[in-house]
Design a protein around this nucleic acid. Structure first.
Lengths: 336, 336
DNA sequence: ACCCCTGGCGCAATCGATTACATTGATTTC
DNA sequence: GAAATCAATGTAATCGATTGCGCCAGGGGT
């Protein structure tokens, strides 16, 4: 290796001070005199020095980095949340790194990150982390540096920031009812998912409030993917007795669902009203434009980071923070 | 801090060997005897030890981590590429971290990563990195640990893996011509973007081959976003003399474009044929299903990682690797 | 005038793992 | 049977930055 990167010692030599002084000049400017500070700064310029974060992390036992685990980066829903996390993080001088959780399923890479001090903490947008790794997150520190956002897992004492999924579902059903619909079905998210449960709960609650029956054959199983929306549409087409409106647990399934119906001559909203959940970017530009439940994604990201920071600094964070959802009415629903 | 994480010394004590032996037992199993290896392994189990990657990185001057810079995580186009990178990376024992480039625009965080040894290298899906940071990527090492994928920047001696954008555009135009279209327009990507240039070049080449005129008023400016597609549609609607087909530089703009046209009573493909570029997931489920140019996204991800690894190991990587594009014909195009 | 205090700075230990070199006992070679 | 070789392990230096401790000089208090 011909030319090594300059180290703090090179800067020290250039500024005719000790390495300790250089360190202080950079990290605690008011701990050194004006004159030395300037001369150190010049030396940094001259040598082209940049802190070696690895060495710093080793000594400080802190990385200034947070990792966000996303169940599926492909799902457009997460980008705004990430943006929210990033804006809060950069304000605090943190770097955000994103990792897809799916590759982790096999190996225990998540564990690596927490236990190896490569990140100060984790925000998981995935509620179903391998059980064994969770305790590891808190090993050796006062407070778990793990925060759930969007999804969560109960009974682990891990703080979470969530949307009001139940309230959102109620909004959706209320809207359909206000349009005169009484025959309403629901396309579920993946089995076992907390969001699936919360949205279904909202659905049944709202139906009950309006004294409407929840028919088993109108509750279809999905998994948040486009394809599962397509499959659900096929099941729906096979129904002898069809509902006049469907509440779908997310937008992506709605695209698959509506498009497959369209291919079989069933048009939304002419033949069926559809309200979905998420309000991802394309929802507004789908044909028909999607009526859907919007979640304040940027805010949840910011809140998640704030919560992480509180936990990391030893404060006691709010354990459950819930953000409101709103209904965005567009063209995929209409009066019976 | 009551209970520290166990270190290699704790393991050494538990196994009654030296720390050096523990290190060797874990990293070079055949350098130690069967017996000690087993006893070290047991000690690791007992103590719950996990390597401190920060310390390892400091000493080894290698991190086993690669950072991928994505221009815009929100754009669905990138997820498959990331998956490709991840699958190649995990095979090589590498961890992939993803970072959005937009927050970097302000600060010089990219520089941090390269110069601070927090990652062995970078794959950038963004061709327009701040100029000053590029040389930094190669400082202190034989080969730049930077690889461009999808987008790139010429004249920097940085290897890149790309799609055949020009060929894809030619495929698109040929398809339209084969359907009898002669009046063909084009919606550009963002000004200054290499992809924009390559796709436009393909467009003009193909038009020339068919002896068709490229009309300036039929070349619309976009920037790959949904909204720019909407704006382009409005411009298109204002055209006194309209083309019968449009080649759009990506799918996302196509959604905005087609939906805005739809709102003004212009239907695709009835009134206008549209072929786009990317084949992101929703393309197949848009209404109408989108005719578009597919790029082997998973493969490009794998190729990018392979190229990075070659460069990092001091081999001389292929400087430009081009992957073929294919046309997927669906319902947004039809004969005049 | 003497003592104490403090701002500014250097020395050296430290974070935890890796690895060049040294050591030891055993085995092979001539 | 002596010398050379080798496998297995320990010792200690090292990666680069941070920070507790202590030294020194100068200013203020009495």
């Amino acid at each position: 290796m011909p030319n090594r990167l300059p180290t703090i010692r090179d800067v020290a030599r250039a500024a005719s001070v000790s390495a300790a002084t250089v360190s202080r000049a950079l990290s605690f400017p008011d701990k050194v005199s004006e004159a030395t500070r300037l001369s150190v700064l010049r030396a940094v310029q001259d040598t082209g020095y940049a802190v070696n974060q690895v060495a710093r992390s080793l000594r400080r036992r802190t990385t200034g980095t947070i990792v966000v685990f996303v169940p599926n980066i492909g799902n457009q829903f997460f980008s705004r949340i990430l943006a929210g996390i990033e804006s809060a993080a950069s304000r605090a001088g943190y770097t955000v790194l994103i990792s897809d959780t799916r590759p982790l399923a096999g190996g225990g890479m998540l564990m690596d990150f927490v236990r190896n001090n490569r990140a100060d903490g984790l925000i998981s947008l995935d509620g179903v982390l391998p059980r064994q790794i969770l305790p590891a997150a808190s090993a050796g520190r006062r407070t778990p540096a793990l925060v759930f956002a969007c999804e969560w897992q109960d009974g682990l004492g891990i703080p979470s920031v969530r949307f009001d999924n139940e309230g959102g579902a109620i909004l959706a059903v209320d809207h359909l009812v206000s349009l005169g619909h009484a025959r309403i079905g629901h396309l579920l998210g993946p089995a076992g998912n907390v969001l699936t449960g919360a949205r279904l709960a909202g659905f049944t609650t709202a139906m009950a409030r309006h004294a409407l029956p929840v028919r088993d054959d109108w509750i279809l199983q999905g998994d948040f993917t486009l394809e599962s929306g397509v499959r659900a549409a096929r099941e729906w087409l096979d129904l002898a007795d069809r509902p006049s409106a469907m509440f779908l647990a997310n937008d992506e399934m709605a695209f698959g669902f509506i498009s497959e119906l369209h291919r079989h001559g069933v048009e939304v909203p002419r033949d069926l009203s559809v309200v979905a959940f998420d309000d991802i970017d394309i929802a507004e530009r789908y044909i028909p434009a999607l009526t859907t439940v919007r979640q304040p994604r940027h805010e949840i990201g910011e809140a998640a980071f704030t919560t992480f920071l509180e936990a990391f600094n030893g404060e006691v964070p709010e354990m459950i923070r819930t953000l409101p959802a709103t209904l965005i009415v567009r063209e995929s629903t209409r009066a019976v």
